[in-house]
Design a protein around this nucleic acid. Structure first.
Lengths: 147, 147
DNA sequence: GGCTATTTGTTCGTATGTATA
DNA sequence: TTATACATACGAACAAATAGC
């Protein structure tokens, strides 16, 4: 029987790494999401838990979570926790009009409120000559080019 | 001569406001950008300056800047400062193929490096049946529906 | 309703390291 | 080299939101 060589991912934070601890921690949590270990809708371990498990300060944990929030991968609810964001249950499919130009950018806080989007969710801006621009939240909208 | 009534915007931070100091400060800087007072390419006042001008702690200033960075409105360079981001000098106009479906999301750090985009810049994901998805950085790409 | 424990939110302080001019 | 500016990371305290009883 030949020995088996396996690659095991290191799941600890290396304080001597060139990579900041909070970036490493964000990577660990992101990997857990990508692997399905943390499924959509499930809570990320609490700040306290992550502090104890990884032996880092609260700020380090909060910055890691903040990264995932700005990536749109988790949503944080005050007093409750951070939860893995999934694909929207229902996405509106908007068929573009010929010649429409589409850009995408992040919303201001006011726009976040107006369109009801959480952090890390971009906006579509659809413009056509002679018309006002229309804006769609990118987490609930799929644009489709006309046939 | 009738008296003139003007609305003067308060440009100070109110510690008693329900709105966190760092959100207020981000709003002040955002307003300065929108008004043209801080034009594209210009540096935002340094952390030290903002600390002194507004009488807040460094973290408060850093969080305000971080908000604007995740909105894609400023870019921060270590050891130099934060600079107002303008529209890209050159945007590639990509004409969509019929039936293409477009979504938009924030990049992971790896994708940020791969596509050379800074914080706060979304990605376009363009998919068509039978093809691999194509990805474009939203700060240098405008999609156009075919005529 | 009220109380308590948990969890996240905000804000200060301090120290050290890295990058730039 | 020195000064300036941003980056990381620890600690601490209190506020606010939430959930369970």
């Amino acid at each position: 029987m030949t020995p088996t060589v396996r690659t095991v991912k290191i799941v600890t934070i290396d304080p001597d790494s060139y990579e900041p601890a909070y970036v490493q921690l964000a990577g660990l949590i992101r990997a857990a999401i990508d692997s399905g270990e943390l499924a959509a809708g499930q809570p990320v371990p609490s700040e306290k838990t992550l502090i104890q498990q990884h032996g880092v300060a609260r700020e380090t944990v909060r910055r890691a979570i903040a990264i995932l929030r700005t990536e749109g991968r988790v949503q944080t609810l005050a007093g409750r926790g951070s939860y893995v964001r999934g694909s929207a249950d229902e996405a509106e499919i908007v068929t573009l009009e010929p010649g429409a130009r589409i850009s995408s950018r992040m919303p201001s806080p006011a726009e976040r409120r107006e369109f009801g989007v959480s952090e890390g969710v971009p906006l579509f801006v659809v413009e056509r000559d002679g018309h006002d621009a229309r804006i769609y939240p990118a987490d609930r909208t799929i644009l489709e080019a006309p046939n």
